[in-house]
Each structure stands twice: as structure tokens, then as C-alpha cells.
Simulated scan of single mutants.
Amino acid sequence: MEEMLNVRSASTTIDFAERAVAAGLPVEPHRGENWALLALGALAAADGLDAALHGTQDILVRARARGSALTVVTVSALQALIQVRRGDLAAAEADAQTAIELAPDLLGARFLVLAVAAAVLAGLERGETPEALQRLIDRAGVGYDAEFTSGSQLRYALAMLRAAAGNHESAIEDLRACGRDDPAFGGENPALLAWRSAAALSLAELGRHDEARSLAADEVQRARSYGAARAIGIALRAQALVAPASDRAEGLTAAVDVLAPSAARLEYARALVDLGATSRAAGQRTAAREPLLEGLALAARCGARTLERRAKAELAAIGLRPRTTDRTGVDSLTPSERRVVELAATGDTNREIAQALFVTEKTVETHLGRAFRKLNASSRRQLPDLLARSGG
């Protein structure tokens, strides 16, 4: 499986991973069968996001039916990261919360670090403060473990948290450590961890432009060599943002073009808003309008409130004031409410939902009641359509 993670081609990675998955996913992959988790993680890294999500969902259905809480924690944590990559931030938070809530009662829930990493990354995009997310980490009681291969995901998330708080020196230190200490699980391949792009942006914030441009160029080369559109788009965006102002629009246009057909909706939205902001800053109000409006719509669909606010501010600067995004639909649900609604939409009874989520039927009834009011729904039959319209 390490060979699959370090292969030099995204298409070959997907081929290897899909053949592994086709052989049959184990019901409880944490019990000596981590190859399944590696295969699904590799699929996600290589942009096989839908296939990876289908794999985790398949395992979770069977794990919940068996009452295997440890498998639910393990696979929900992985699924949360997959959802972050897909840009479904509400779903990512729901999956992460499932793992975080169940893990304290279990032994061996090492994959909790993935859930916490996903919760931090999604939370930053959803507008949660660095202080609130640090409290979440403290409550979960997790930290970077050099002996655990997936620990690099948490280290990356912690670095992003520090950058969001303005502590760019510490962020750069953590990001460089991802490359130094975890070469097999993200240090070399930017499709696993785009740490060079993130470090380049923090270096630029500190005025260290030559270092930033060198690191960004390295990431672009590595991403292109591997061939995953999400990684290439992230790298091109970072390279453009640390470049001289006169070169930014061309670089961001390249990033937009690469990301447009990919499943990485959040990264596409980010590149669009950056392109629009760059055009606006150059006085090109007409050119700024379309990417900003499209980026705003995508950000709203992803639930990326931080990006949404930025897009609205940029649009206001060119004299446009889009309507306030409606928060009464699926995006207004809490992670717990969303989990219950998703299971109810499949036809599960309250008892079955309670067993699947390891909660009481009364808790399920409470969450459903609140969700129905927020969704203005009167019947469970409406739930699949409501979720589909939200992108869920």
C-alpha cells in the first residue's frame, strides 16, 4: 500500500486503489486490514473523491448495522477528510463530530486525529474562530504522533490554524516538518498534503517572497508530475498569489481552468474569488464580476462562510450587493441534526438511527424535530430532495 501512496501518477494510483477496493472492503478495516483505509485515502488524494466516498459509506452502513462503534469512528474520520476535499463542509463537520463524540468511550481510536484535522479545516472555512477550534482540539485530547502515519494530517491542520491566527512563523515550522518527518504520507506528494503551497502563502505574509516563490514553484512541478487536478490547482493558485502583482491574473486563470472540471468545489471557488479580487484590484471591474459571482455561489454551496464573506466584500467594492445567503435550509443544520436527517432520508426508523449513531431514540426525535422546523419539512419523504438540492 505504501507503493500505491508514493506512485508517480494519479491515474495509476486510482487504478491500484480501485482494484484493491474491488477485491472487497472489510467490514472492520481497523482490525489488521488498514489496507482498505489506505486504498480509500489514496483514491481521495488522486481525485477519485466520489469513489472514495462511496467506499467509506459502504463500510459505515455495515458497521452501523453490526454496532461496531470503533469502525464508525475510524471510517467517519476518514470520510470527514474526504468531504473537506469535496467541499461539503457541513458533511465534513458532521462526520468529524460523529468520530469525536464516540471516540472517548473506545480504546484504539487512533484515527480520531483525522476527525480532528477535518474539523479544524472545515471549521476555519465555516467561520469558526481559531480560539474555538483550539478548544475543540484540547477537548479531543489529541496531538501529533510521529509513530502514527496519519498524524501528518493533524500537523497540517494545526499549521493552518496557526496561520489563520496570524502566527505564520509557527505555521511555516509545522508545514516544513510535514515534509521533513512524513515523506511517505504527504511530504513528497502534494496531492496528499499541499504543505508547500500553504507555507509559501505564510512566507509571503512575512515578506519572504523569494522563499515563497521557490517553494510554490517546487509544488507546481511535483503536482503536475503526479497529475491530480486538485493538487495542481492548489499549487498554481499559491504560485500566482506569491508572484508579482502583474503575473497573478494569468496564474489564477490557469488554476481556475484546471479546477473547473474537478470535484474540488471549494478549491475552485477559492481560485475564482482570488481571480475576481485580482481583477478588481487592477481596476478591471467588469472582468471581476463573473468570477466573483460564481465563486460566491460555490462558496455558499460549500458552506464556506469565510470565503463567502470575502466574495461579498469584493463584490461590494465594485458596486454589487448580492442577496444575503439563506441560512434556513440544510446549511443551517447542526452536525448532529444533519447526521440524523441523512439517515432518516434513507428510510431508517428512529430506532435504527439511534442504533446507528449510538444515541437514544429521544435524542433522534429532538434532532429531527429541530431539523424539520429549519427545513420547513412536514414529512420524511421530503428529505432526500432537500438534501439533493443542497449538494448533500
Rank of each mutant, 00 (worst) to 15 (best):
L154W: 06
S225A: 15
P183Q: 03
T149D: 10
R62E: 07
F16K: 05
R237M: 07
S76W: 15
R289G: 09
T349I: 09
L266R: 14
V75Y: 08
A311M: 14
A90D: 14
N6I: 09
T306L: 10
T366M: 11
S390G: 12
A39L: 01
G251D: 06
S68Q: 09
V340W: 00
Q134K: 07
G127N: 04
L25N: 04
R155D: 07
D50G: 09
S246V: 10
G24W: 02
T363A: 14
R327I: 11
A269L: 09
G123T: 08
S390Y: 10
I14R: 13
E365I: 14
L307K: 13
G143W: 13
L272Y: 11
D174V: 02
L38R: 10
F185P: 00
E250F: 01
P104N: 01
A254G: 05
P291D: 06
T325W: 13
L158G: 12
A356G: 09
L154H: 09
A277H: 04
R327F: 05
R338T: 02
G179H: 02
V120Q: 14
S76N: 08
L383F: 02
Q97F: 02
P130E: 05
V340S: 03
A77R: 07
A344N: 15
W35T: 10
P291R: 08
G392S: 12
R19H: 08
N6E: 05
A157K: 04
L259P: 07
V340L: 11
G187D: 00
L133H: 04
S390H: 11
I318D: 03
F358A: 15
A371S: 14
D174W: 03
A263P: 11
R289V: 06
A299F: 07
S202K: 06
D385R: 10
Q153I: 00
D174E: 14
R31F: 10
T334D: 00
A10V: 07
L53F: 11
G32H: 09
E267Y: 06
A240T: 07
S150Y: 11
D58S: 15
G141H: 04
L320D: 10
A217F: 04
A316T: 13
A240M: 06
T13N: 05
R380W: 06
R196P: 07
G347E: 01
Q79V: 03
F358L: 12
L252E: 12
T349S: 12
D50T: 09
R323Y: 00
G347P: 04
S262G: 14
I82S: 01
A198D: 15
G166H: 02
M1V: 15
A69W: 14
